[in-house]
Structure formats: structure tokens, C-alpha cells
Design a protein around this nucleic acid. Structure first.
Lengths: 125, 125
DNA sequence: CCAGTAGATTGGCAGGTGTCGATGCATCGA
DNA sequence: TCGATGCATCGACACCTGCCAATCTACTGG
């Protein structure tokens, strides 16, 4: 710890008096709220799903079309079918995409609400 | 591949005609643009920095105060000093926080512009 | 100059992650 | 009914990541 600071700064013991009370009720923000361990873990899980280039491009492909079949992902993403299945699974487990099986194929679409939640977590207000 | 679709859907070959031309020039969006490998990798690196509960809470502590000393992070985050140093390094390497050394201490603050960039990548428009 | 302190670095370990080939399961067409 | 196909699962491998103890570096105060 330090004894004296060369510049005046707010005490870390009182970061922001009562900002968590203004919480919308659905999406805590990293910037304005005070995160506890659970909230941080939940948000981290969401961002972890976005922390891979292949998954980001997969999400991108699904987002820029009404819906996309799994079979149309292996080509553009240049990954094997099991790998694509692995990534769609991860994205769907955190609720970023949702799949519907029709016949032999699975069609994916984005879940914009989930995307908005993660985006709100980075919002300054 | 499939021969016939049970429901009409847009061809994957033309996801969105010319959306990348409307790019702001600074922040590609997963939802509206067409991501290439480099853009996806850059974004993924940013989200990877947010994909850890300890780092999220660290960012949270720094964001909810004008600036925070490293020595004031080990306590709330309940991690050793090398681990805190490890996390501040990762967050600063992706530009989410910036540190300034004053005397024996390093004071951290958030870089809101970088946060906005990542947030914009999740924006629907 | 020297002892004390804040922070960075190193080394090592345990667990997680991305990838693919092989295989299993369900569905469709013939 | 049977072969073909789209997708999920499994097993294995290489790599990455979070963590800490020990150590190093830079700065302060005496």
C-alpha cells in the first residue's frame, strides 16, 4: 500500500456511491455498475464466446443473412465440420445464436437481444 | 451441401450487397459489415481481454474511479501481485486501460474510446 | 549509499481451448 | 429397406491461459 499520493485521487473504498441501484435489471455495465463475482463471470462467459476469430466470422455470416445453414459455414470459414459444430455450439450456449433443425439441416440466426446485452455492458451510461 | 431448401432463404453468396462500404472507417461491426480474417482477429483479441472475470472486475474498479493504483487492486480482486500485473498488462496491451507511473506507483485509467470501439462492433447499425 | 517498497518478469504447473479424424445418430431419397 | 447426407459426439493432440512463488528492477527515504 501507499502512504501518500503525489496527486489527489478519490478513495478506492468509495468508487461510486450507489450506481448499482440504477441498474436496468437486465444488463450490468462494466463502466457504471459495481460488478460482483457472479456478474463478472456471466459477462466473461459471453465475451469468451466472442474471443475467437472463427466464431466472430461465423457470427458475422449468420448476422448478415436472415439465416444460415451449418453446411454453408464450413466453406467460408475453412474449418472442418466438427469444428464448425463446436463453434455453433459455443455461440448457441451463450445465447448469441439460435438454431432450428429443418429436415437434415440446421439453420442458425442471431439473437439480437443477447448481443445488445453484451453491448450494454460496455456502455458508459 | 444441400440441393433444395424447405424454406426460401437468401443465397449465402450474397450476404449483404455493399455494407462494408458504409463502414465508419474505424470500427467494423460484426452485425452489419463483412469481416475478413484480420478484422476478426483484431476484434477477437479485444474481446479475449474481456473474457475473464478477474479482468472484468479489474476494469470495473478502474472504470468506476478516476484512476486506480495497482496496489489497490490486489485487495479487492483477491489475487497475487504478479497476477494483477499480468491482467493489467493484458488489458493495457489491447488498449482498454492506460497506466501512468508516478513515483513508485502505477495509476490506471480506462480508455473509453477503445471501449466504444468494441461496443460498436456489436451494434446492429 | 543503502534498506525498503511497488511493480514487472520468469518459471512452472494445472486446466482450458481449437482443431481434426473417426464414429454415431437421425433424416431424406430411391 | 438401404445407401447417402448433414450434424453431433468422442478421442487425441498441440497450444494457450490463469495462477503463484521466487526473483529482478526501479524508485523513495533516510
Amino acid at each position: 500500500m501507499r502512504k501518500l499520493v503525489p496527486m489527489a485521487r478519490t478513495a478506492p473504498s468509495t468508487p461510486v456511491p450507489a450506481a448499482d441501484a440504477v441498474d436496468v435489471g437486465c444488463c450490468p455495465s462494466v463502466v457504471v455498475d459495481v460488478l460482483d463475482d457472479e456478474e463478472a463471470a456471466a459477462l466473461a462467459a459471453g465475451f469468451a464466446a466472442l474471443a475467437d476469430p472463427v466464431r466472430l466470422r461465423l457470427l458475422n455470416l449468420v448476422a448478415t443473412a436472415p439465416e444460415v445453414c451449418s453446411c454453408d459455414l464450413t466453406g467460408p470459414l475453412e474449418r472442418s465440420q466438427p469444428t464448425i459444430s463446436h463453434h455453433t455450439r459455443i455461440l448457441s450456449e451463450v445465447g448469441l445464436i439460435a438454431g432450428e433443425k429443418r429436415g437434415r439441416w440446421v439453420y442458425w440466426r442471431v439473437v439480437p437481444e443477447r448481443l445488445s446485452q453484451l453491448r450494454a455492458a460496455l456502455a458508459p451510461s
